[in-house]
């Protein structure tokens, strides 16, 4: 369970979030520039809140009053970026093993071969990222994050850079991760259609504020959510 109560002054608005994510997959949706990526960066430790606290499975990752601020490498949070950010000088196999190598054997929940098999990467393992397609690269990025045996997987519009066909091909892998590997996810997207294939639990965000939080079908009719759905909510679908 992730508890997020943070305040962060950004250039254009103040991010003010107070939510608890208890479901296997919680999605954050909202228009571009709503603060979605910032939330993920705050959770993974790449950005620092001005105040508040972030707790994951009862372990404080950040607590302003207590002076706790775990560095990213100690948070055990996997982060999949919109651009895959694979290491260009390493092969797919070495990319997959990058985070895995830092784990003590007792902390390793998954084996690289099993994850490569699950994501259908086995035949591509010796290739450098430059020789992989966009979809293949994103699958390697996904596998790389999973192999750190994270307590939470942050997905920052992982399908945004892919075309429709590729999105449809990767979605089953994401459902595999949710259902078979049991890693909780915080999934960011501005495409509601994509989100609903993974979860019903959503946080609607706009200009740094949580407009609604809960089951999509129960919040979709709310007056403040409808404009997001009509104007930009289905962008990319």
């Amino acid at each position: 369970m992730l508890t997020l109560r943070v305040h962060k002054q950004l250039a254009e608005f103040t991010l003010e979030v107070d939510v608890t994510c208890a479901h296997p997959v919680t999605a954050i949706f909202g228009p571009s520039g709503a603060g979605k990526t910032t939330i993920l960066n705050l959770v993974s430790g790449l950005m620092r809140p001005d105040s508040g606290e972030i707790t994951l499975e009862d372990i404080p990752l950040f607590h302003a009053e207590k002076g706790i601020d775990l560095p990213p490498e100690q948070r055990r949070v996997g982060h999949v970026f919109q651009d895959d950010l694979l290491f260009p000088h390493l092969s797919a196999r070495q990319n997959l093993a990058y985070g895995y190598q830092f784990l003590a054997p007792s902390e390793r929940k998954f084996h690289p071969d099993a994850i490569a098999d699950l994501l259908e990467l086995t035949a591509l393992l010796d290739r450098r990222p430059a020789l992989l397609s966009a979809g293949e690269r994103q699958r390697v990025a996904l596998g790389r994050a999973i192999l750190t045996s994270p307590k939470l997987l942050l997905m920052d519009e992982p399908l945004a850079a892919l075309d429709r066909e590729l999105k449809d091909r990767i979605m089953p892998y994401l459902r595999h991760i949710r259902t078979d590997l049991g890693i909780p996810m915080l999934y960011v997207s501005h495409a509601v259609g994509e989100i609903l294939q993974l979860t019903e639990q959503v946080i609607a965000l706009n200009r740094g504020r949580v407009l609604a939080h809960g089951n999509f079908s129960s919040i979709a009719h709310q007056a403040q959510i409808l404009p997001l759905l009509k104007t930009r909510g289905f962008e990319g679908e």
């Binding site: 790449l46 990213p72 996997g78 970026f81 830092f102 750190t148």
Partner: peptide
Amino acid sequence: RAARTLGA
């Protein structure tokens, strides 16, 4: 930054 989130 990606390397940091992977535990480096």
